[in-house]
């Protein structure tokens, strides 16, 4: 078995890891109970999947330049995936697209509650 064969197998295994994470994302999308938990399955395992596939491409091409050209792909994805998750998650929370009975602790609801009560109280005090 030559060195080339070993590299081929390594890249195949990396691709297999990426495929497994993609499959898990799809299954999680179907099986997780509400939209906010689906978001976990959706965005994150795929970042690692992308890193694995990018490594596989560079190994298969046997070139450092290819790896460097692929760095922006991972970089963009790492900057952009949290933004999307945050925007969608916040929208989902506000539209009530989650099941409150599923949350063990909800600090945000408590704090929003507190803030609304404070906001309700303060204008009245100013007016009087």
């Amino acid at each position: 078995m030559s060195f080339d064969d070993i590299l081929d197998i390594v890249s195949a295994v990396l691709v297999l890891g990426g495929a497994f994470l993609t499959l898990a994302a799809g299954v999680g999308l179907i099986r997780f109970p509400d939209a906010l938990s689906g978001l976990h399955a959706a965005t994150k395992p795929q970042v690692l999947g992308l890193i694995l596939v990018v490594l596989a491409i560079a190994i298969e091409a046997r070139s450092w330049t290819t790896l460097l050209t692929l760095v922006p792909v991972v970089l963009f994805q790492m900057l952009v995936a949290p933004t999307a998750a945050h925007m969608i998650g916040r929208a989902g929370y506000r539209t009530g697209d989650f099941r409150p009975e599923l949350s063990l602790v909800d600090d945000l609801a408590d704090d929003i509650d507190l803030a609304t009560r404070e906001a309700d109280r303060s204008p009245r005090r100013q007016r009087s």
Partner: peptide, 15 residues
């Protein structure tokens, strides 16, 4: 969310 996953799957498949 699902269409986002589909798009990422596409990126990975291209790779």
């Amino acid at each position: 969310i699902a269409s986002d996953v589909l798009l990422t799957t596409l990126i990975l498949a291209a790779g």
